[in-house]
């Protein structure tokens, strides 16, 4: 009896959580329908999942969702995944080295400058990853709107798993499937926060659809351009000095691709301003036309 009561509670909780993926008005109606109809928790859960599934599928008839999928999840998620995998591989080594007082020096020349350079590059790359993630989150949610749930989950898995699974495939011996699945699904450390928190921040602003402000967006683009340039220059040092355990050597085209969401944000703000200006000019013209003749 106790287990049945627990199962019922779990089903109602799941149904309630799943209903969050519906529009607010429809969510209220559906919850009211189940309160009135007296269906079981399991029936309610299956019903809600059915409705949510149909609503989510219907969103893919709209080009906005496909644009978010290809333009952000694909075009940004895949290169970001490769950079992030390289970053993750060296992050923990650097962190442990610092903690235990044996900082890693991947360059061939000794001295504090080499260590400082390496750490500066890690900080620069961390900032770049966070900035790319926040602008991607903004544009993803700005475009996909109600399909945000699905596209955000897909973005997470592509960024976290694409490069990792590609690397798995190229290994001569395969790890057990259960281990691969666990590694693919579960975040393995605090580095994932570098992606998740900025994406969440960007997504919240993208969903509000209000104006971020042209000045703020331009400042963001300038910061991204500076950080990209710095990271590119620093990554070239690893090649020049034949460094070991480099966090990766991304190309300029990759950096440009990862920065396109920021450029979209600028274009969207400029477009919004032009439309507002046109609207005000039309209003002013209308007012002038309506003035009584002298």
């Amino acid at each position: 009896m106790k287990s049945r009561g627990t199962l019922t509670k779990v089903c109602w909780t799941l149904a309630s959580v799943s209903a969050e993926m519906l529009e607010p008005a429809e969510r209220d109606v559906v919850r009211g329908d189940y309160a009135e109809s007296g269906e079981t928790a399991l029936q309610a859960l299956i019903g809600v999942w059915g409705l949510v599934g149909r609503r989510q599928l219907a969103l893919w008839k709209d080009w906005h969702s496909w644009f978010a999928l290809i333009g952000i999840v694909g075009a940004v998620g895949i290169p970001l995944s490769r950079i992030f995998l390289g970053y993750q591989k060296v992050f923990y080594g650097r962190a442990w080295g610092l903690l235990w007082g044996h900082p890693v020096n991947p360059f061939n020349f000794p001295g504090a400058l080499a260590v400082a350079l390496d750490l500066a590059y890690m900080v620069c790359l961390s900032l770049a990853i966070a900035l790319w993630s926040s602008t991607s989150g903004f544009v993803l949610c700005h475009f996909s709107r109600r399909a945000t749930w699905l596209t955000s989950i897909m973005f997470y898995f592509v960024v976290y798993d694409f490069a990792f699974l590609s690397a798995m495939r190229s290994r001569p011996t395969m790890e057990p499937i259960s281990s691969i699945i666990a590694d693919a699904l579960l975040p393995d450390g605090p580095t994932m926060l570098l992606i998740l928190l900025p994406v969440y921040w960007g997504a919240r602003h993208g969903l509000r659809r209000g104006s971020v402000g042209l000045r703020r967006v331009l400042q963001l683009v300038i910061i991204i351009a500076l950080v990209n340039s710095l990271a590119l220059w620093m990554s070239s040092l690893y090649v020049r000095f034949e460094a070991v355990s480099s966090p990766g050597n991304p190309k300029m085209t990759t950096f440009v691709l990862l920065s396109w969401p920021a450029c979209y944000m600028v274009a969207a703000e400029v477009w919004r301003r032009c439309r507002r200006k046109d609207g005000m000019e039309l209003l002013a013209a209308d007012h002038i036309d309506r003035r009584p003749p002298n």
């Binding site: 559906v30 329908d33 009135e36 059915g50 409705l51 149909r54 609503r55």
Partner: peptide
């Protein structure tokens, strides 16, 4: 299923065959 019901209702409304609106809330509907 409520999935079939509400998606079909939306389709009928888009075609102009029905009109829907939010009614009053009742205690039996929480």
């Amino acid at each position: 299923s409520i999935g079939a019901l509400y998606t079909t209702l939306d389709r009928l409304e888009r075609k102009g065959l029905v009109k829907t609106w939010m009614g009053d809330s009742t205690p039996e509907r929480g």
